[in-house]
Structures are given as C-alpha cells and as structure tokens.
Amino acid sequence: MHRSIATIAALVLAVLVTGAGNAAAEPTVSPRLATAGGTFGGYEPGKAASTYDPALVPEGARAHVFALSAPGLGTSTALSVGGLVPNREYGAHAHTKPCGPTGKDAGPHFQHEQDPVSPSVDPAYANPDNEIWLDFTTDRLGNSLEISKVAWPLGERRPASVVIHEMHTHTAPGEAGDAGSRLACVNVDF
C-alpha cells in the first residue's frame, strides 16, 4: 500500500504523542521534531539519502524519517521506505555521524548509555531499548513503515543519520547490534 507523506506524518504524530499525559510531570521543555528524507542515489556531499548497494537499495528508492523527542515522551522515530527490494528483511538504526562516501562514515549506532567497548556487541548496550532500532520487512511493492519508541529523550548528544543494513539486527552476546553491511544512509537532524 502506498501512503502519502502527509498520511504517514499524521500516523506517526498520532503514535508519537501517545503518553503525552505524562509530560506534565516533567520539566517544561519543548518537544523536538525532526523530519528528513530523500531519494536514494550515489553519495554526494549534502545529499539527503545515499545508497552504497544499489542492488538492495536501488537508486530512485525513497526514505523518510520522522522523530519526536521530549521529556515525559521519550523518543519516537519512524522510518518509511519505498521502492526497495520486495518482501525482504532489512536492519536500520540511528547512527552517530552523518552519511559519508561509505556506510562506515556514519559511525557506530547511537546509544543512550554508551558502551565503553567499540564496536558494541554487548546486549546490555546494543539493544532496542538503548538504541534506536528500525528493522523492517518490505511488502510486495518494496515499501515499509517502522516505528521505534524508547523511554529516553535525546539530550545534547544526538544521532545524525539512519543507516539501512542488509539484515535484521542480531541480539545474542558477541553479535548484538550486528545487522550486516551498511546498504544506505539518510541524514537526519535529530
């Protein structure tokens, strides 16, 4: 099913504000809303969306990221993709740095509580409660919408991109957080 950006934004905002009644007990801080997206192509400086593997994230495919973060709400992030390989599993996570010429340039996964060991493969740190995981499976048209909700709001340290990986994320000790090759990247001003 193809959804317009306005429809996706409305759905995302409806999900993101769930629990807003708890916000009154927190200090008054304005929620931070981030939106980003683009059409995948080869990397160029300043380009919103880059593909590193056009066989799995074709040029012309699209991605949009919506994120809302505030005390009392935590952080909710949605990833909408279109035009990817149909009926395929992908991993996706928020990363610490912006997209670059290679997928590695986006740095490690963003973690609320940072693992002192890098790369992080300890499930105490590399897990969907401490990181923003957006693993998804595309439908028959290559589209998907995934939402991550974590209990913590973003502070001064923020992620800078969402990277799409070749497989769903592993969770076992010694491989936690691994999702294979970095296929594509979207710059997001979280």
Rank of each mutant, 00 (worst) to 15 (best):
L134H: 05
W133C: 02
A23P: 08
Y43A: 05
H112N: 00
T102C: 01
G74V: 06
S144K: 02
A61W: 04
L33E: 00
S80W: 12
N22S: 15
H95S: 06
T75F: 03
D139N: 13
A78I: 14
T96F: 01
A126F: 01
D105K: 05
F66N: 10
D105H: 06
G103K: 04
A55M: 09
P31N: 08
A55H: 12
E59V: 14
V17W: 13
T96H: 03
V117H: 00
N127T: 02
V12K: 10
P128Y: 00
F136V: 04
I132C: 00
V65R: 09
P108W: 02
S69F: 04
V15R: 15
K149Y: 02
V150C: 06
P27T: 12
D135H: 00
V65T: 10
T138K: 05
R32W: 10
T77C: 07
T137F: 00
T77R: 06
G21D: 13
D115C: 06
A48M: 12
S144D: 08
S118C: 04
T18M: 14
G142D: 11
G19Q: 12
T75E: 12
G37D: 08
P101Y: 02
H64V: 15
G100K: 06
H112Q: 01
T51E: 03
A25P: 04
G21P: 10
G91D: 04
I132E: 05
T28K: 14
S69N: 06
L11A: 14
A106V: 01
H64Q: 15
V121Y: 01
G82W: 07
D53C: 03
V121G: 02
G41L: 07
S30P: 11
V81Q: 03
H112F: 03
P128M: 03
L68H: 13
G72L: 13
P128C: 00
A25W: 13
Y125R: 04
